[in-house]
Design a protein around this nucleic acid. Structure first.
Length: 387
DNA sequence: TCTGGGGTCCTAGGACCC
DNA sequence: TCTGGGGTCCTAGGACCC
């Protein structure tokens, strides 16, 4: 999707090997997305940019632009909501739609899907693929298969599973990743059909999901759409150009990241009741600590003091540290926040102050107001709007 | 020249309550 | 010498997805 947005914005990029990635001068930059043209050179997602340049020296590198993708994403979901009110976004560019009761369904599901696909292309410039099925898991499998079809649409009924799904390797199973795939292969289970036919006892080592895997592969699982609700977390993290050796040296980054998370909370209308802090050391081991805020807040200083408390609880083995992440949890809509028992004038004034900061940033860019003592390793984009 | 950033969900163990 | 059982909530870590 990132590559499609870039090409939609700048048509001169169309048809070229293109990669969305961070600064190629940074050793730690990786490929976020590769266009189909770039992939034909062996370039793929998560590959270091340097490696991509070695495989394809003339590849065009475009920096990621979150605001741009969010704009396209909003347009996409707006189109989808014109077809059905039940749209459950799974990510910035994917959603589950309940088409039952949709007026266009009378002409048949495939016809409706083609109309949706055409409308999305006309109104956003994005090419989507659509999987049709009676449940989310099979719809997702169908969508993956639809990508390889010229019309981009595939309908998969439960009775089609043996023909289309069972021959696929276990890695193609939505929900099975590298770890589980390796465990299955150890048991001699190689295809999704093997999962369907395996003795249920074979899945005892896989927890609750083990039982479901088999039901899904058999087409007997009856799970509805994911529930609608507020997000579980809003987070920001940063990998440093060089590992950081001591907790004190983390401070400027902690300040900058807390400010970013707080800004997003306010921008999306939430306050956080809990906070999580994550460190990744040079051996790629992750450490996380979490805690509660004294009161739900979207103020940077409140997130910061909790983050500092969490940082003090981290073991020394979390250093040298390559990544710091902060996540806001227990999100509540600001307007649904329970009234404070002891209203605090100073706190209310700080909320007003932060609302003003949010407004200034909205009009003049994120860099118009910066936290004192904060430091970001991210390259600063030249501001387009310098009014 | 290793290995980003934003998420969700599950699990196991422990604290705590009645 | 003996110290139950059931339930909830929280935490840290890990698997997975885009």
């Amino acid at each position: 999707m990132f590559a499609s947005c870039a090409a939609a914005e700048d048509p001169s990029l169309r048809g070229l090997p293109l990669v969305v990635a961070g600064d190629p001068g940074d050793r730690r930059s990786i490929v976020l997305t590769a266009s189909y043209e770039a992939r034909s050179f062996g370039v793929h997602t998560a590959m270091p940019v340097r490696e991509a340049l070695r495989l394809c020296p003339h590849v065009r590198i475009v920096p990621p632009d979150r605001a741009l993708y969010e704009r396209y994403s909003r347009q996409l979901f707006d189109v989808l909501r014109d077809f059905t009110p039940v749209v459950r976004p799974v990510s910035i560019d994917e959603a589950y739609l309940d088409l039952a009761g949709c007026p266009g369904l009378a002409a048949g599901p495939l016809q409706l899907a083609s109309v949706i696909r055409r409308t999305v292309a006309e109104r956003t410039g994005l090419q989507v693929s659509i999987g049709l099925a009676e449940g989310p898991w099979l719809a997702k499998m169908a969508a993956d298969l639809a990508k390889k079809r010229p019309d981009g649409v595939l309908l998969l009924l439960a009775r089609d599973i043996p023909e289309f799904v069972w021959p696929l390797g276990v890695e193609a199973f939505h929900g099975i990743g590298p770890k589980t795939a390796a465990k299955l292969r150890q048991l001699g289970i190689r295809t999704i059909g093997d999962i369907a036919h395996a003795d249920p006892a074979a899945f005892s080592g896989f927890g609750a999901y083990g039982r479901r895997m088999r039901d899904l592969a058999l087409g007997t699982d009856r799970e509805g759409l994911p529930e609608d609700g507020p997000p579980v977390s809003i987070s920001s993290e940063e990998t440093f150009a060089r590992d950081i050796l001591a907790p004190e040296a983390l401070h400027p980054h902690l300040v900058a990241i807390c400010d970013r998370v707080a800004e997003r909370l306010r921008g999306e209308g939430y306050v956080a009741g809990g906070l999580g802090l994550r460190l990744r050391n040079s051996d790629f081991r992750d450490y996380s600590r979490q805690g509660r805020l004294p009161a739900p807040s979207a103020r940077a200083e409140d997130l910061r003091s909790e983050a500092q408390a969490l940082l003090r609880r981290m073991p020394a083995t979390a250093f040298p540290c390559r990544l710091l992440g902060i996540a806001a949890h227990r999100l509540v809509r600001v307007d649904a926040r329970p009234p404070e028992l002891f209203p605090d004038d100073a706190a209310q004034r700080r909320d007003q102050l932060w609302q003003a900061v949010t407004e200034v940033r909205r009009r003049f860019g994120a860099d118009a107001v910066r936290p004192l003592g904060g430091q970001s390793a991210r390259p600063r984009k030249p501001s387009r709007d310098t009014r």
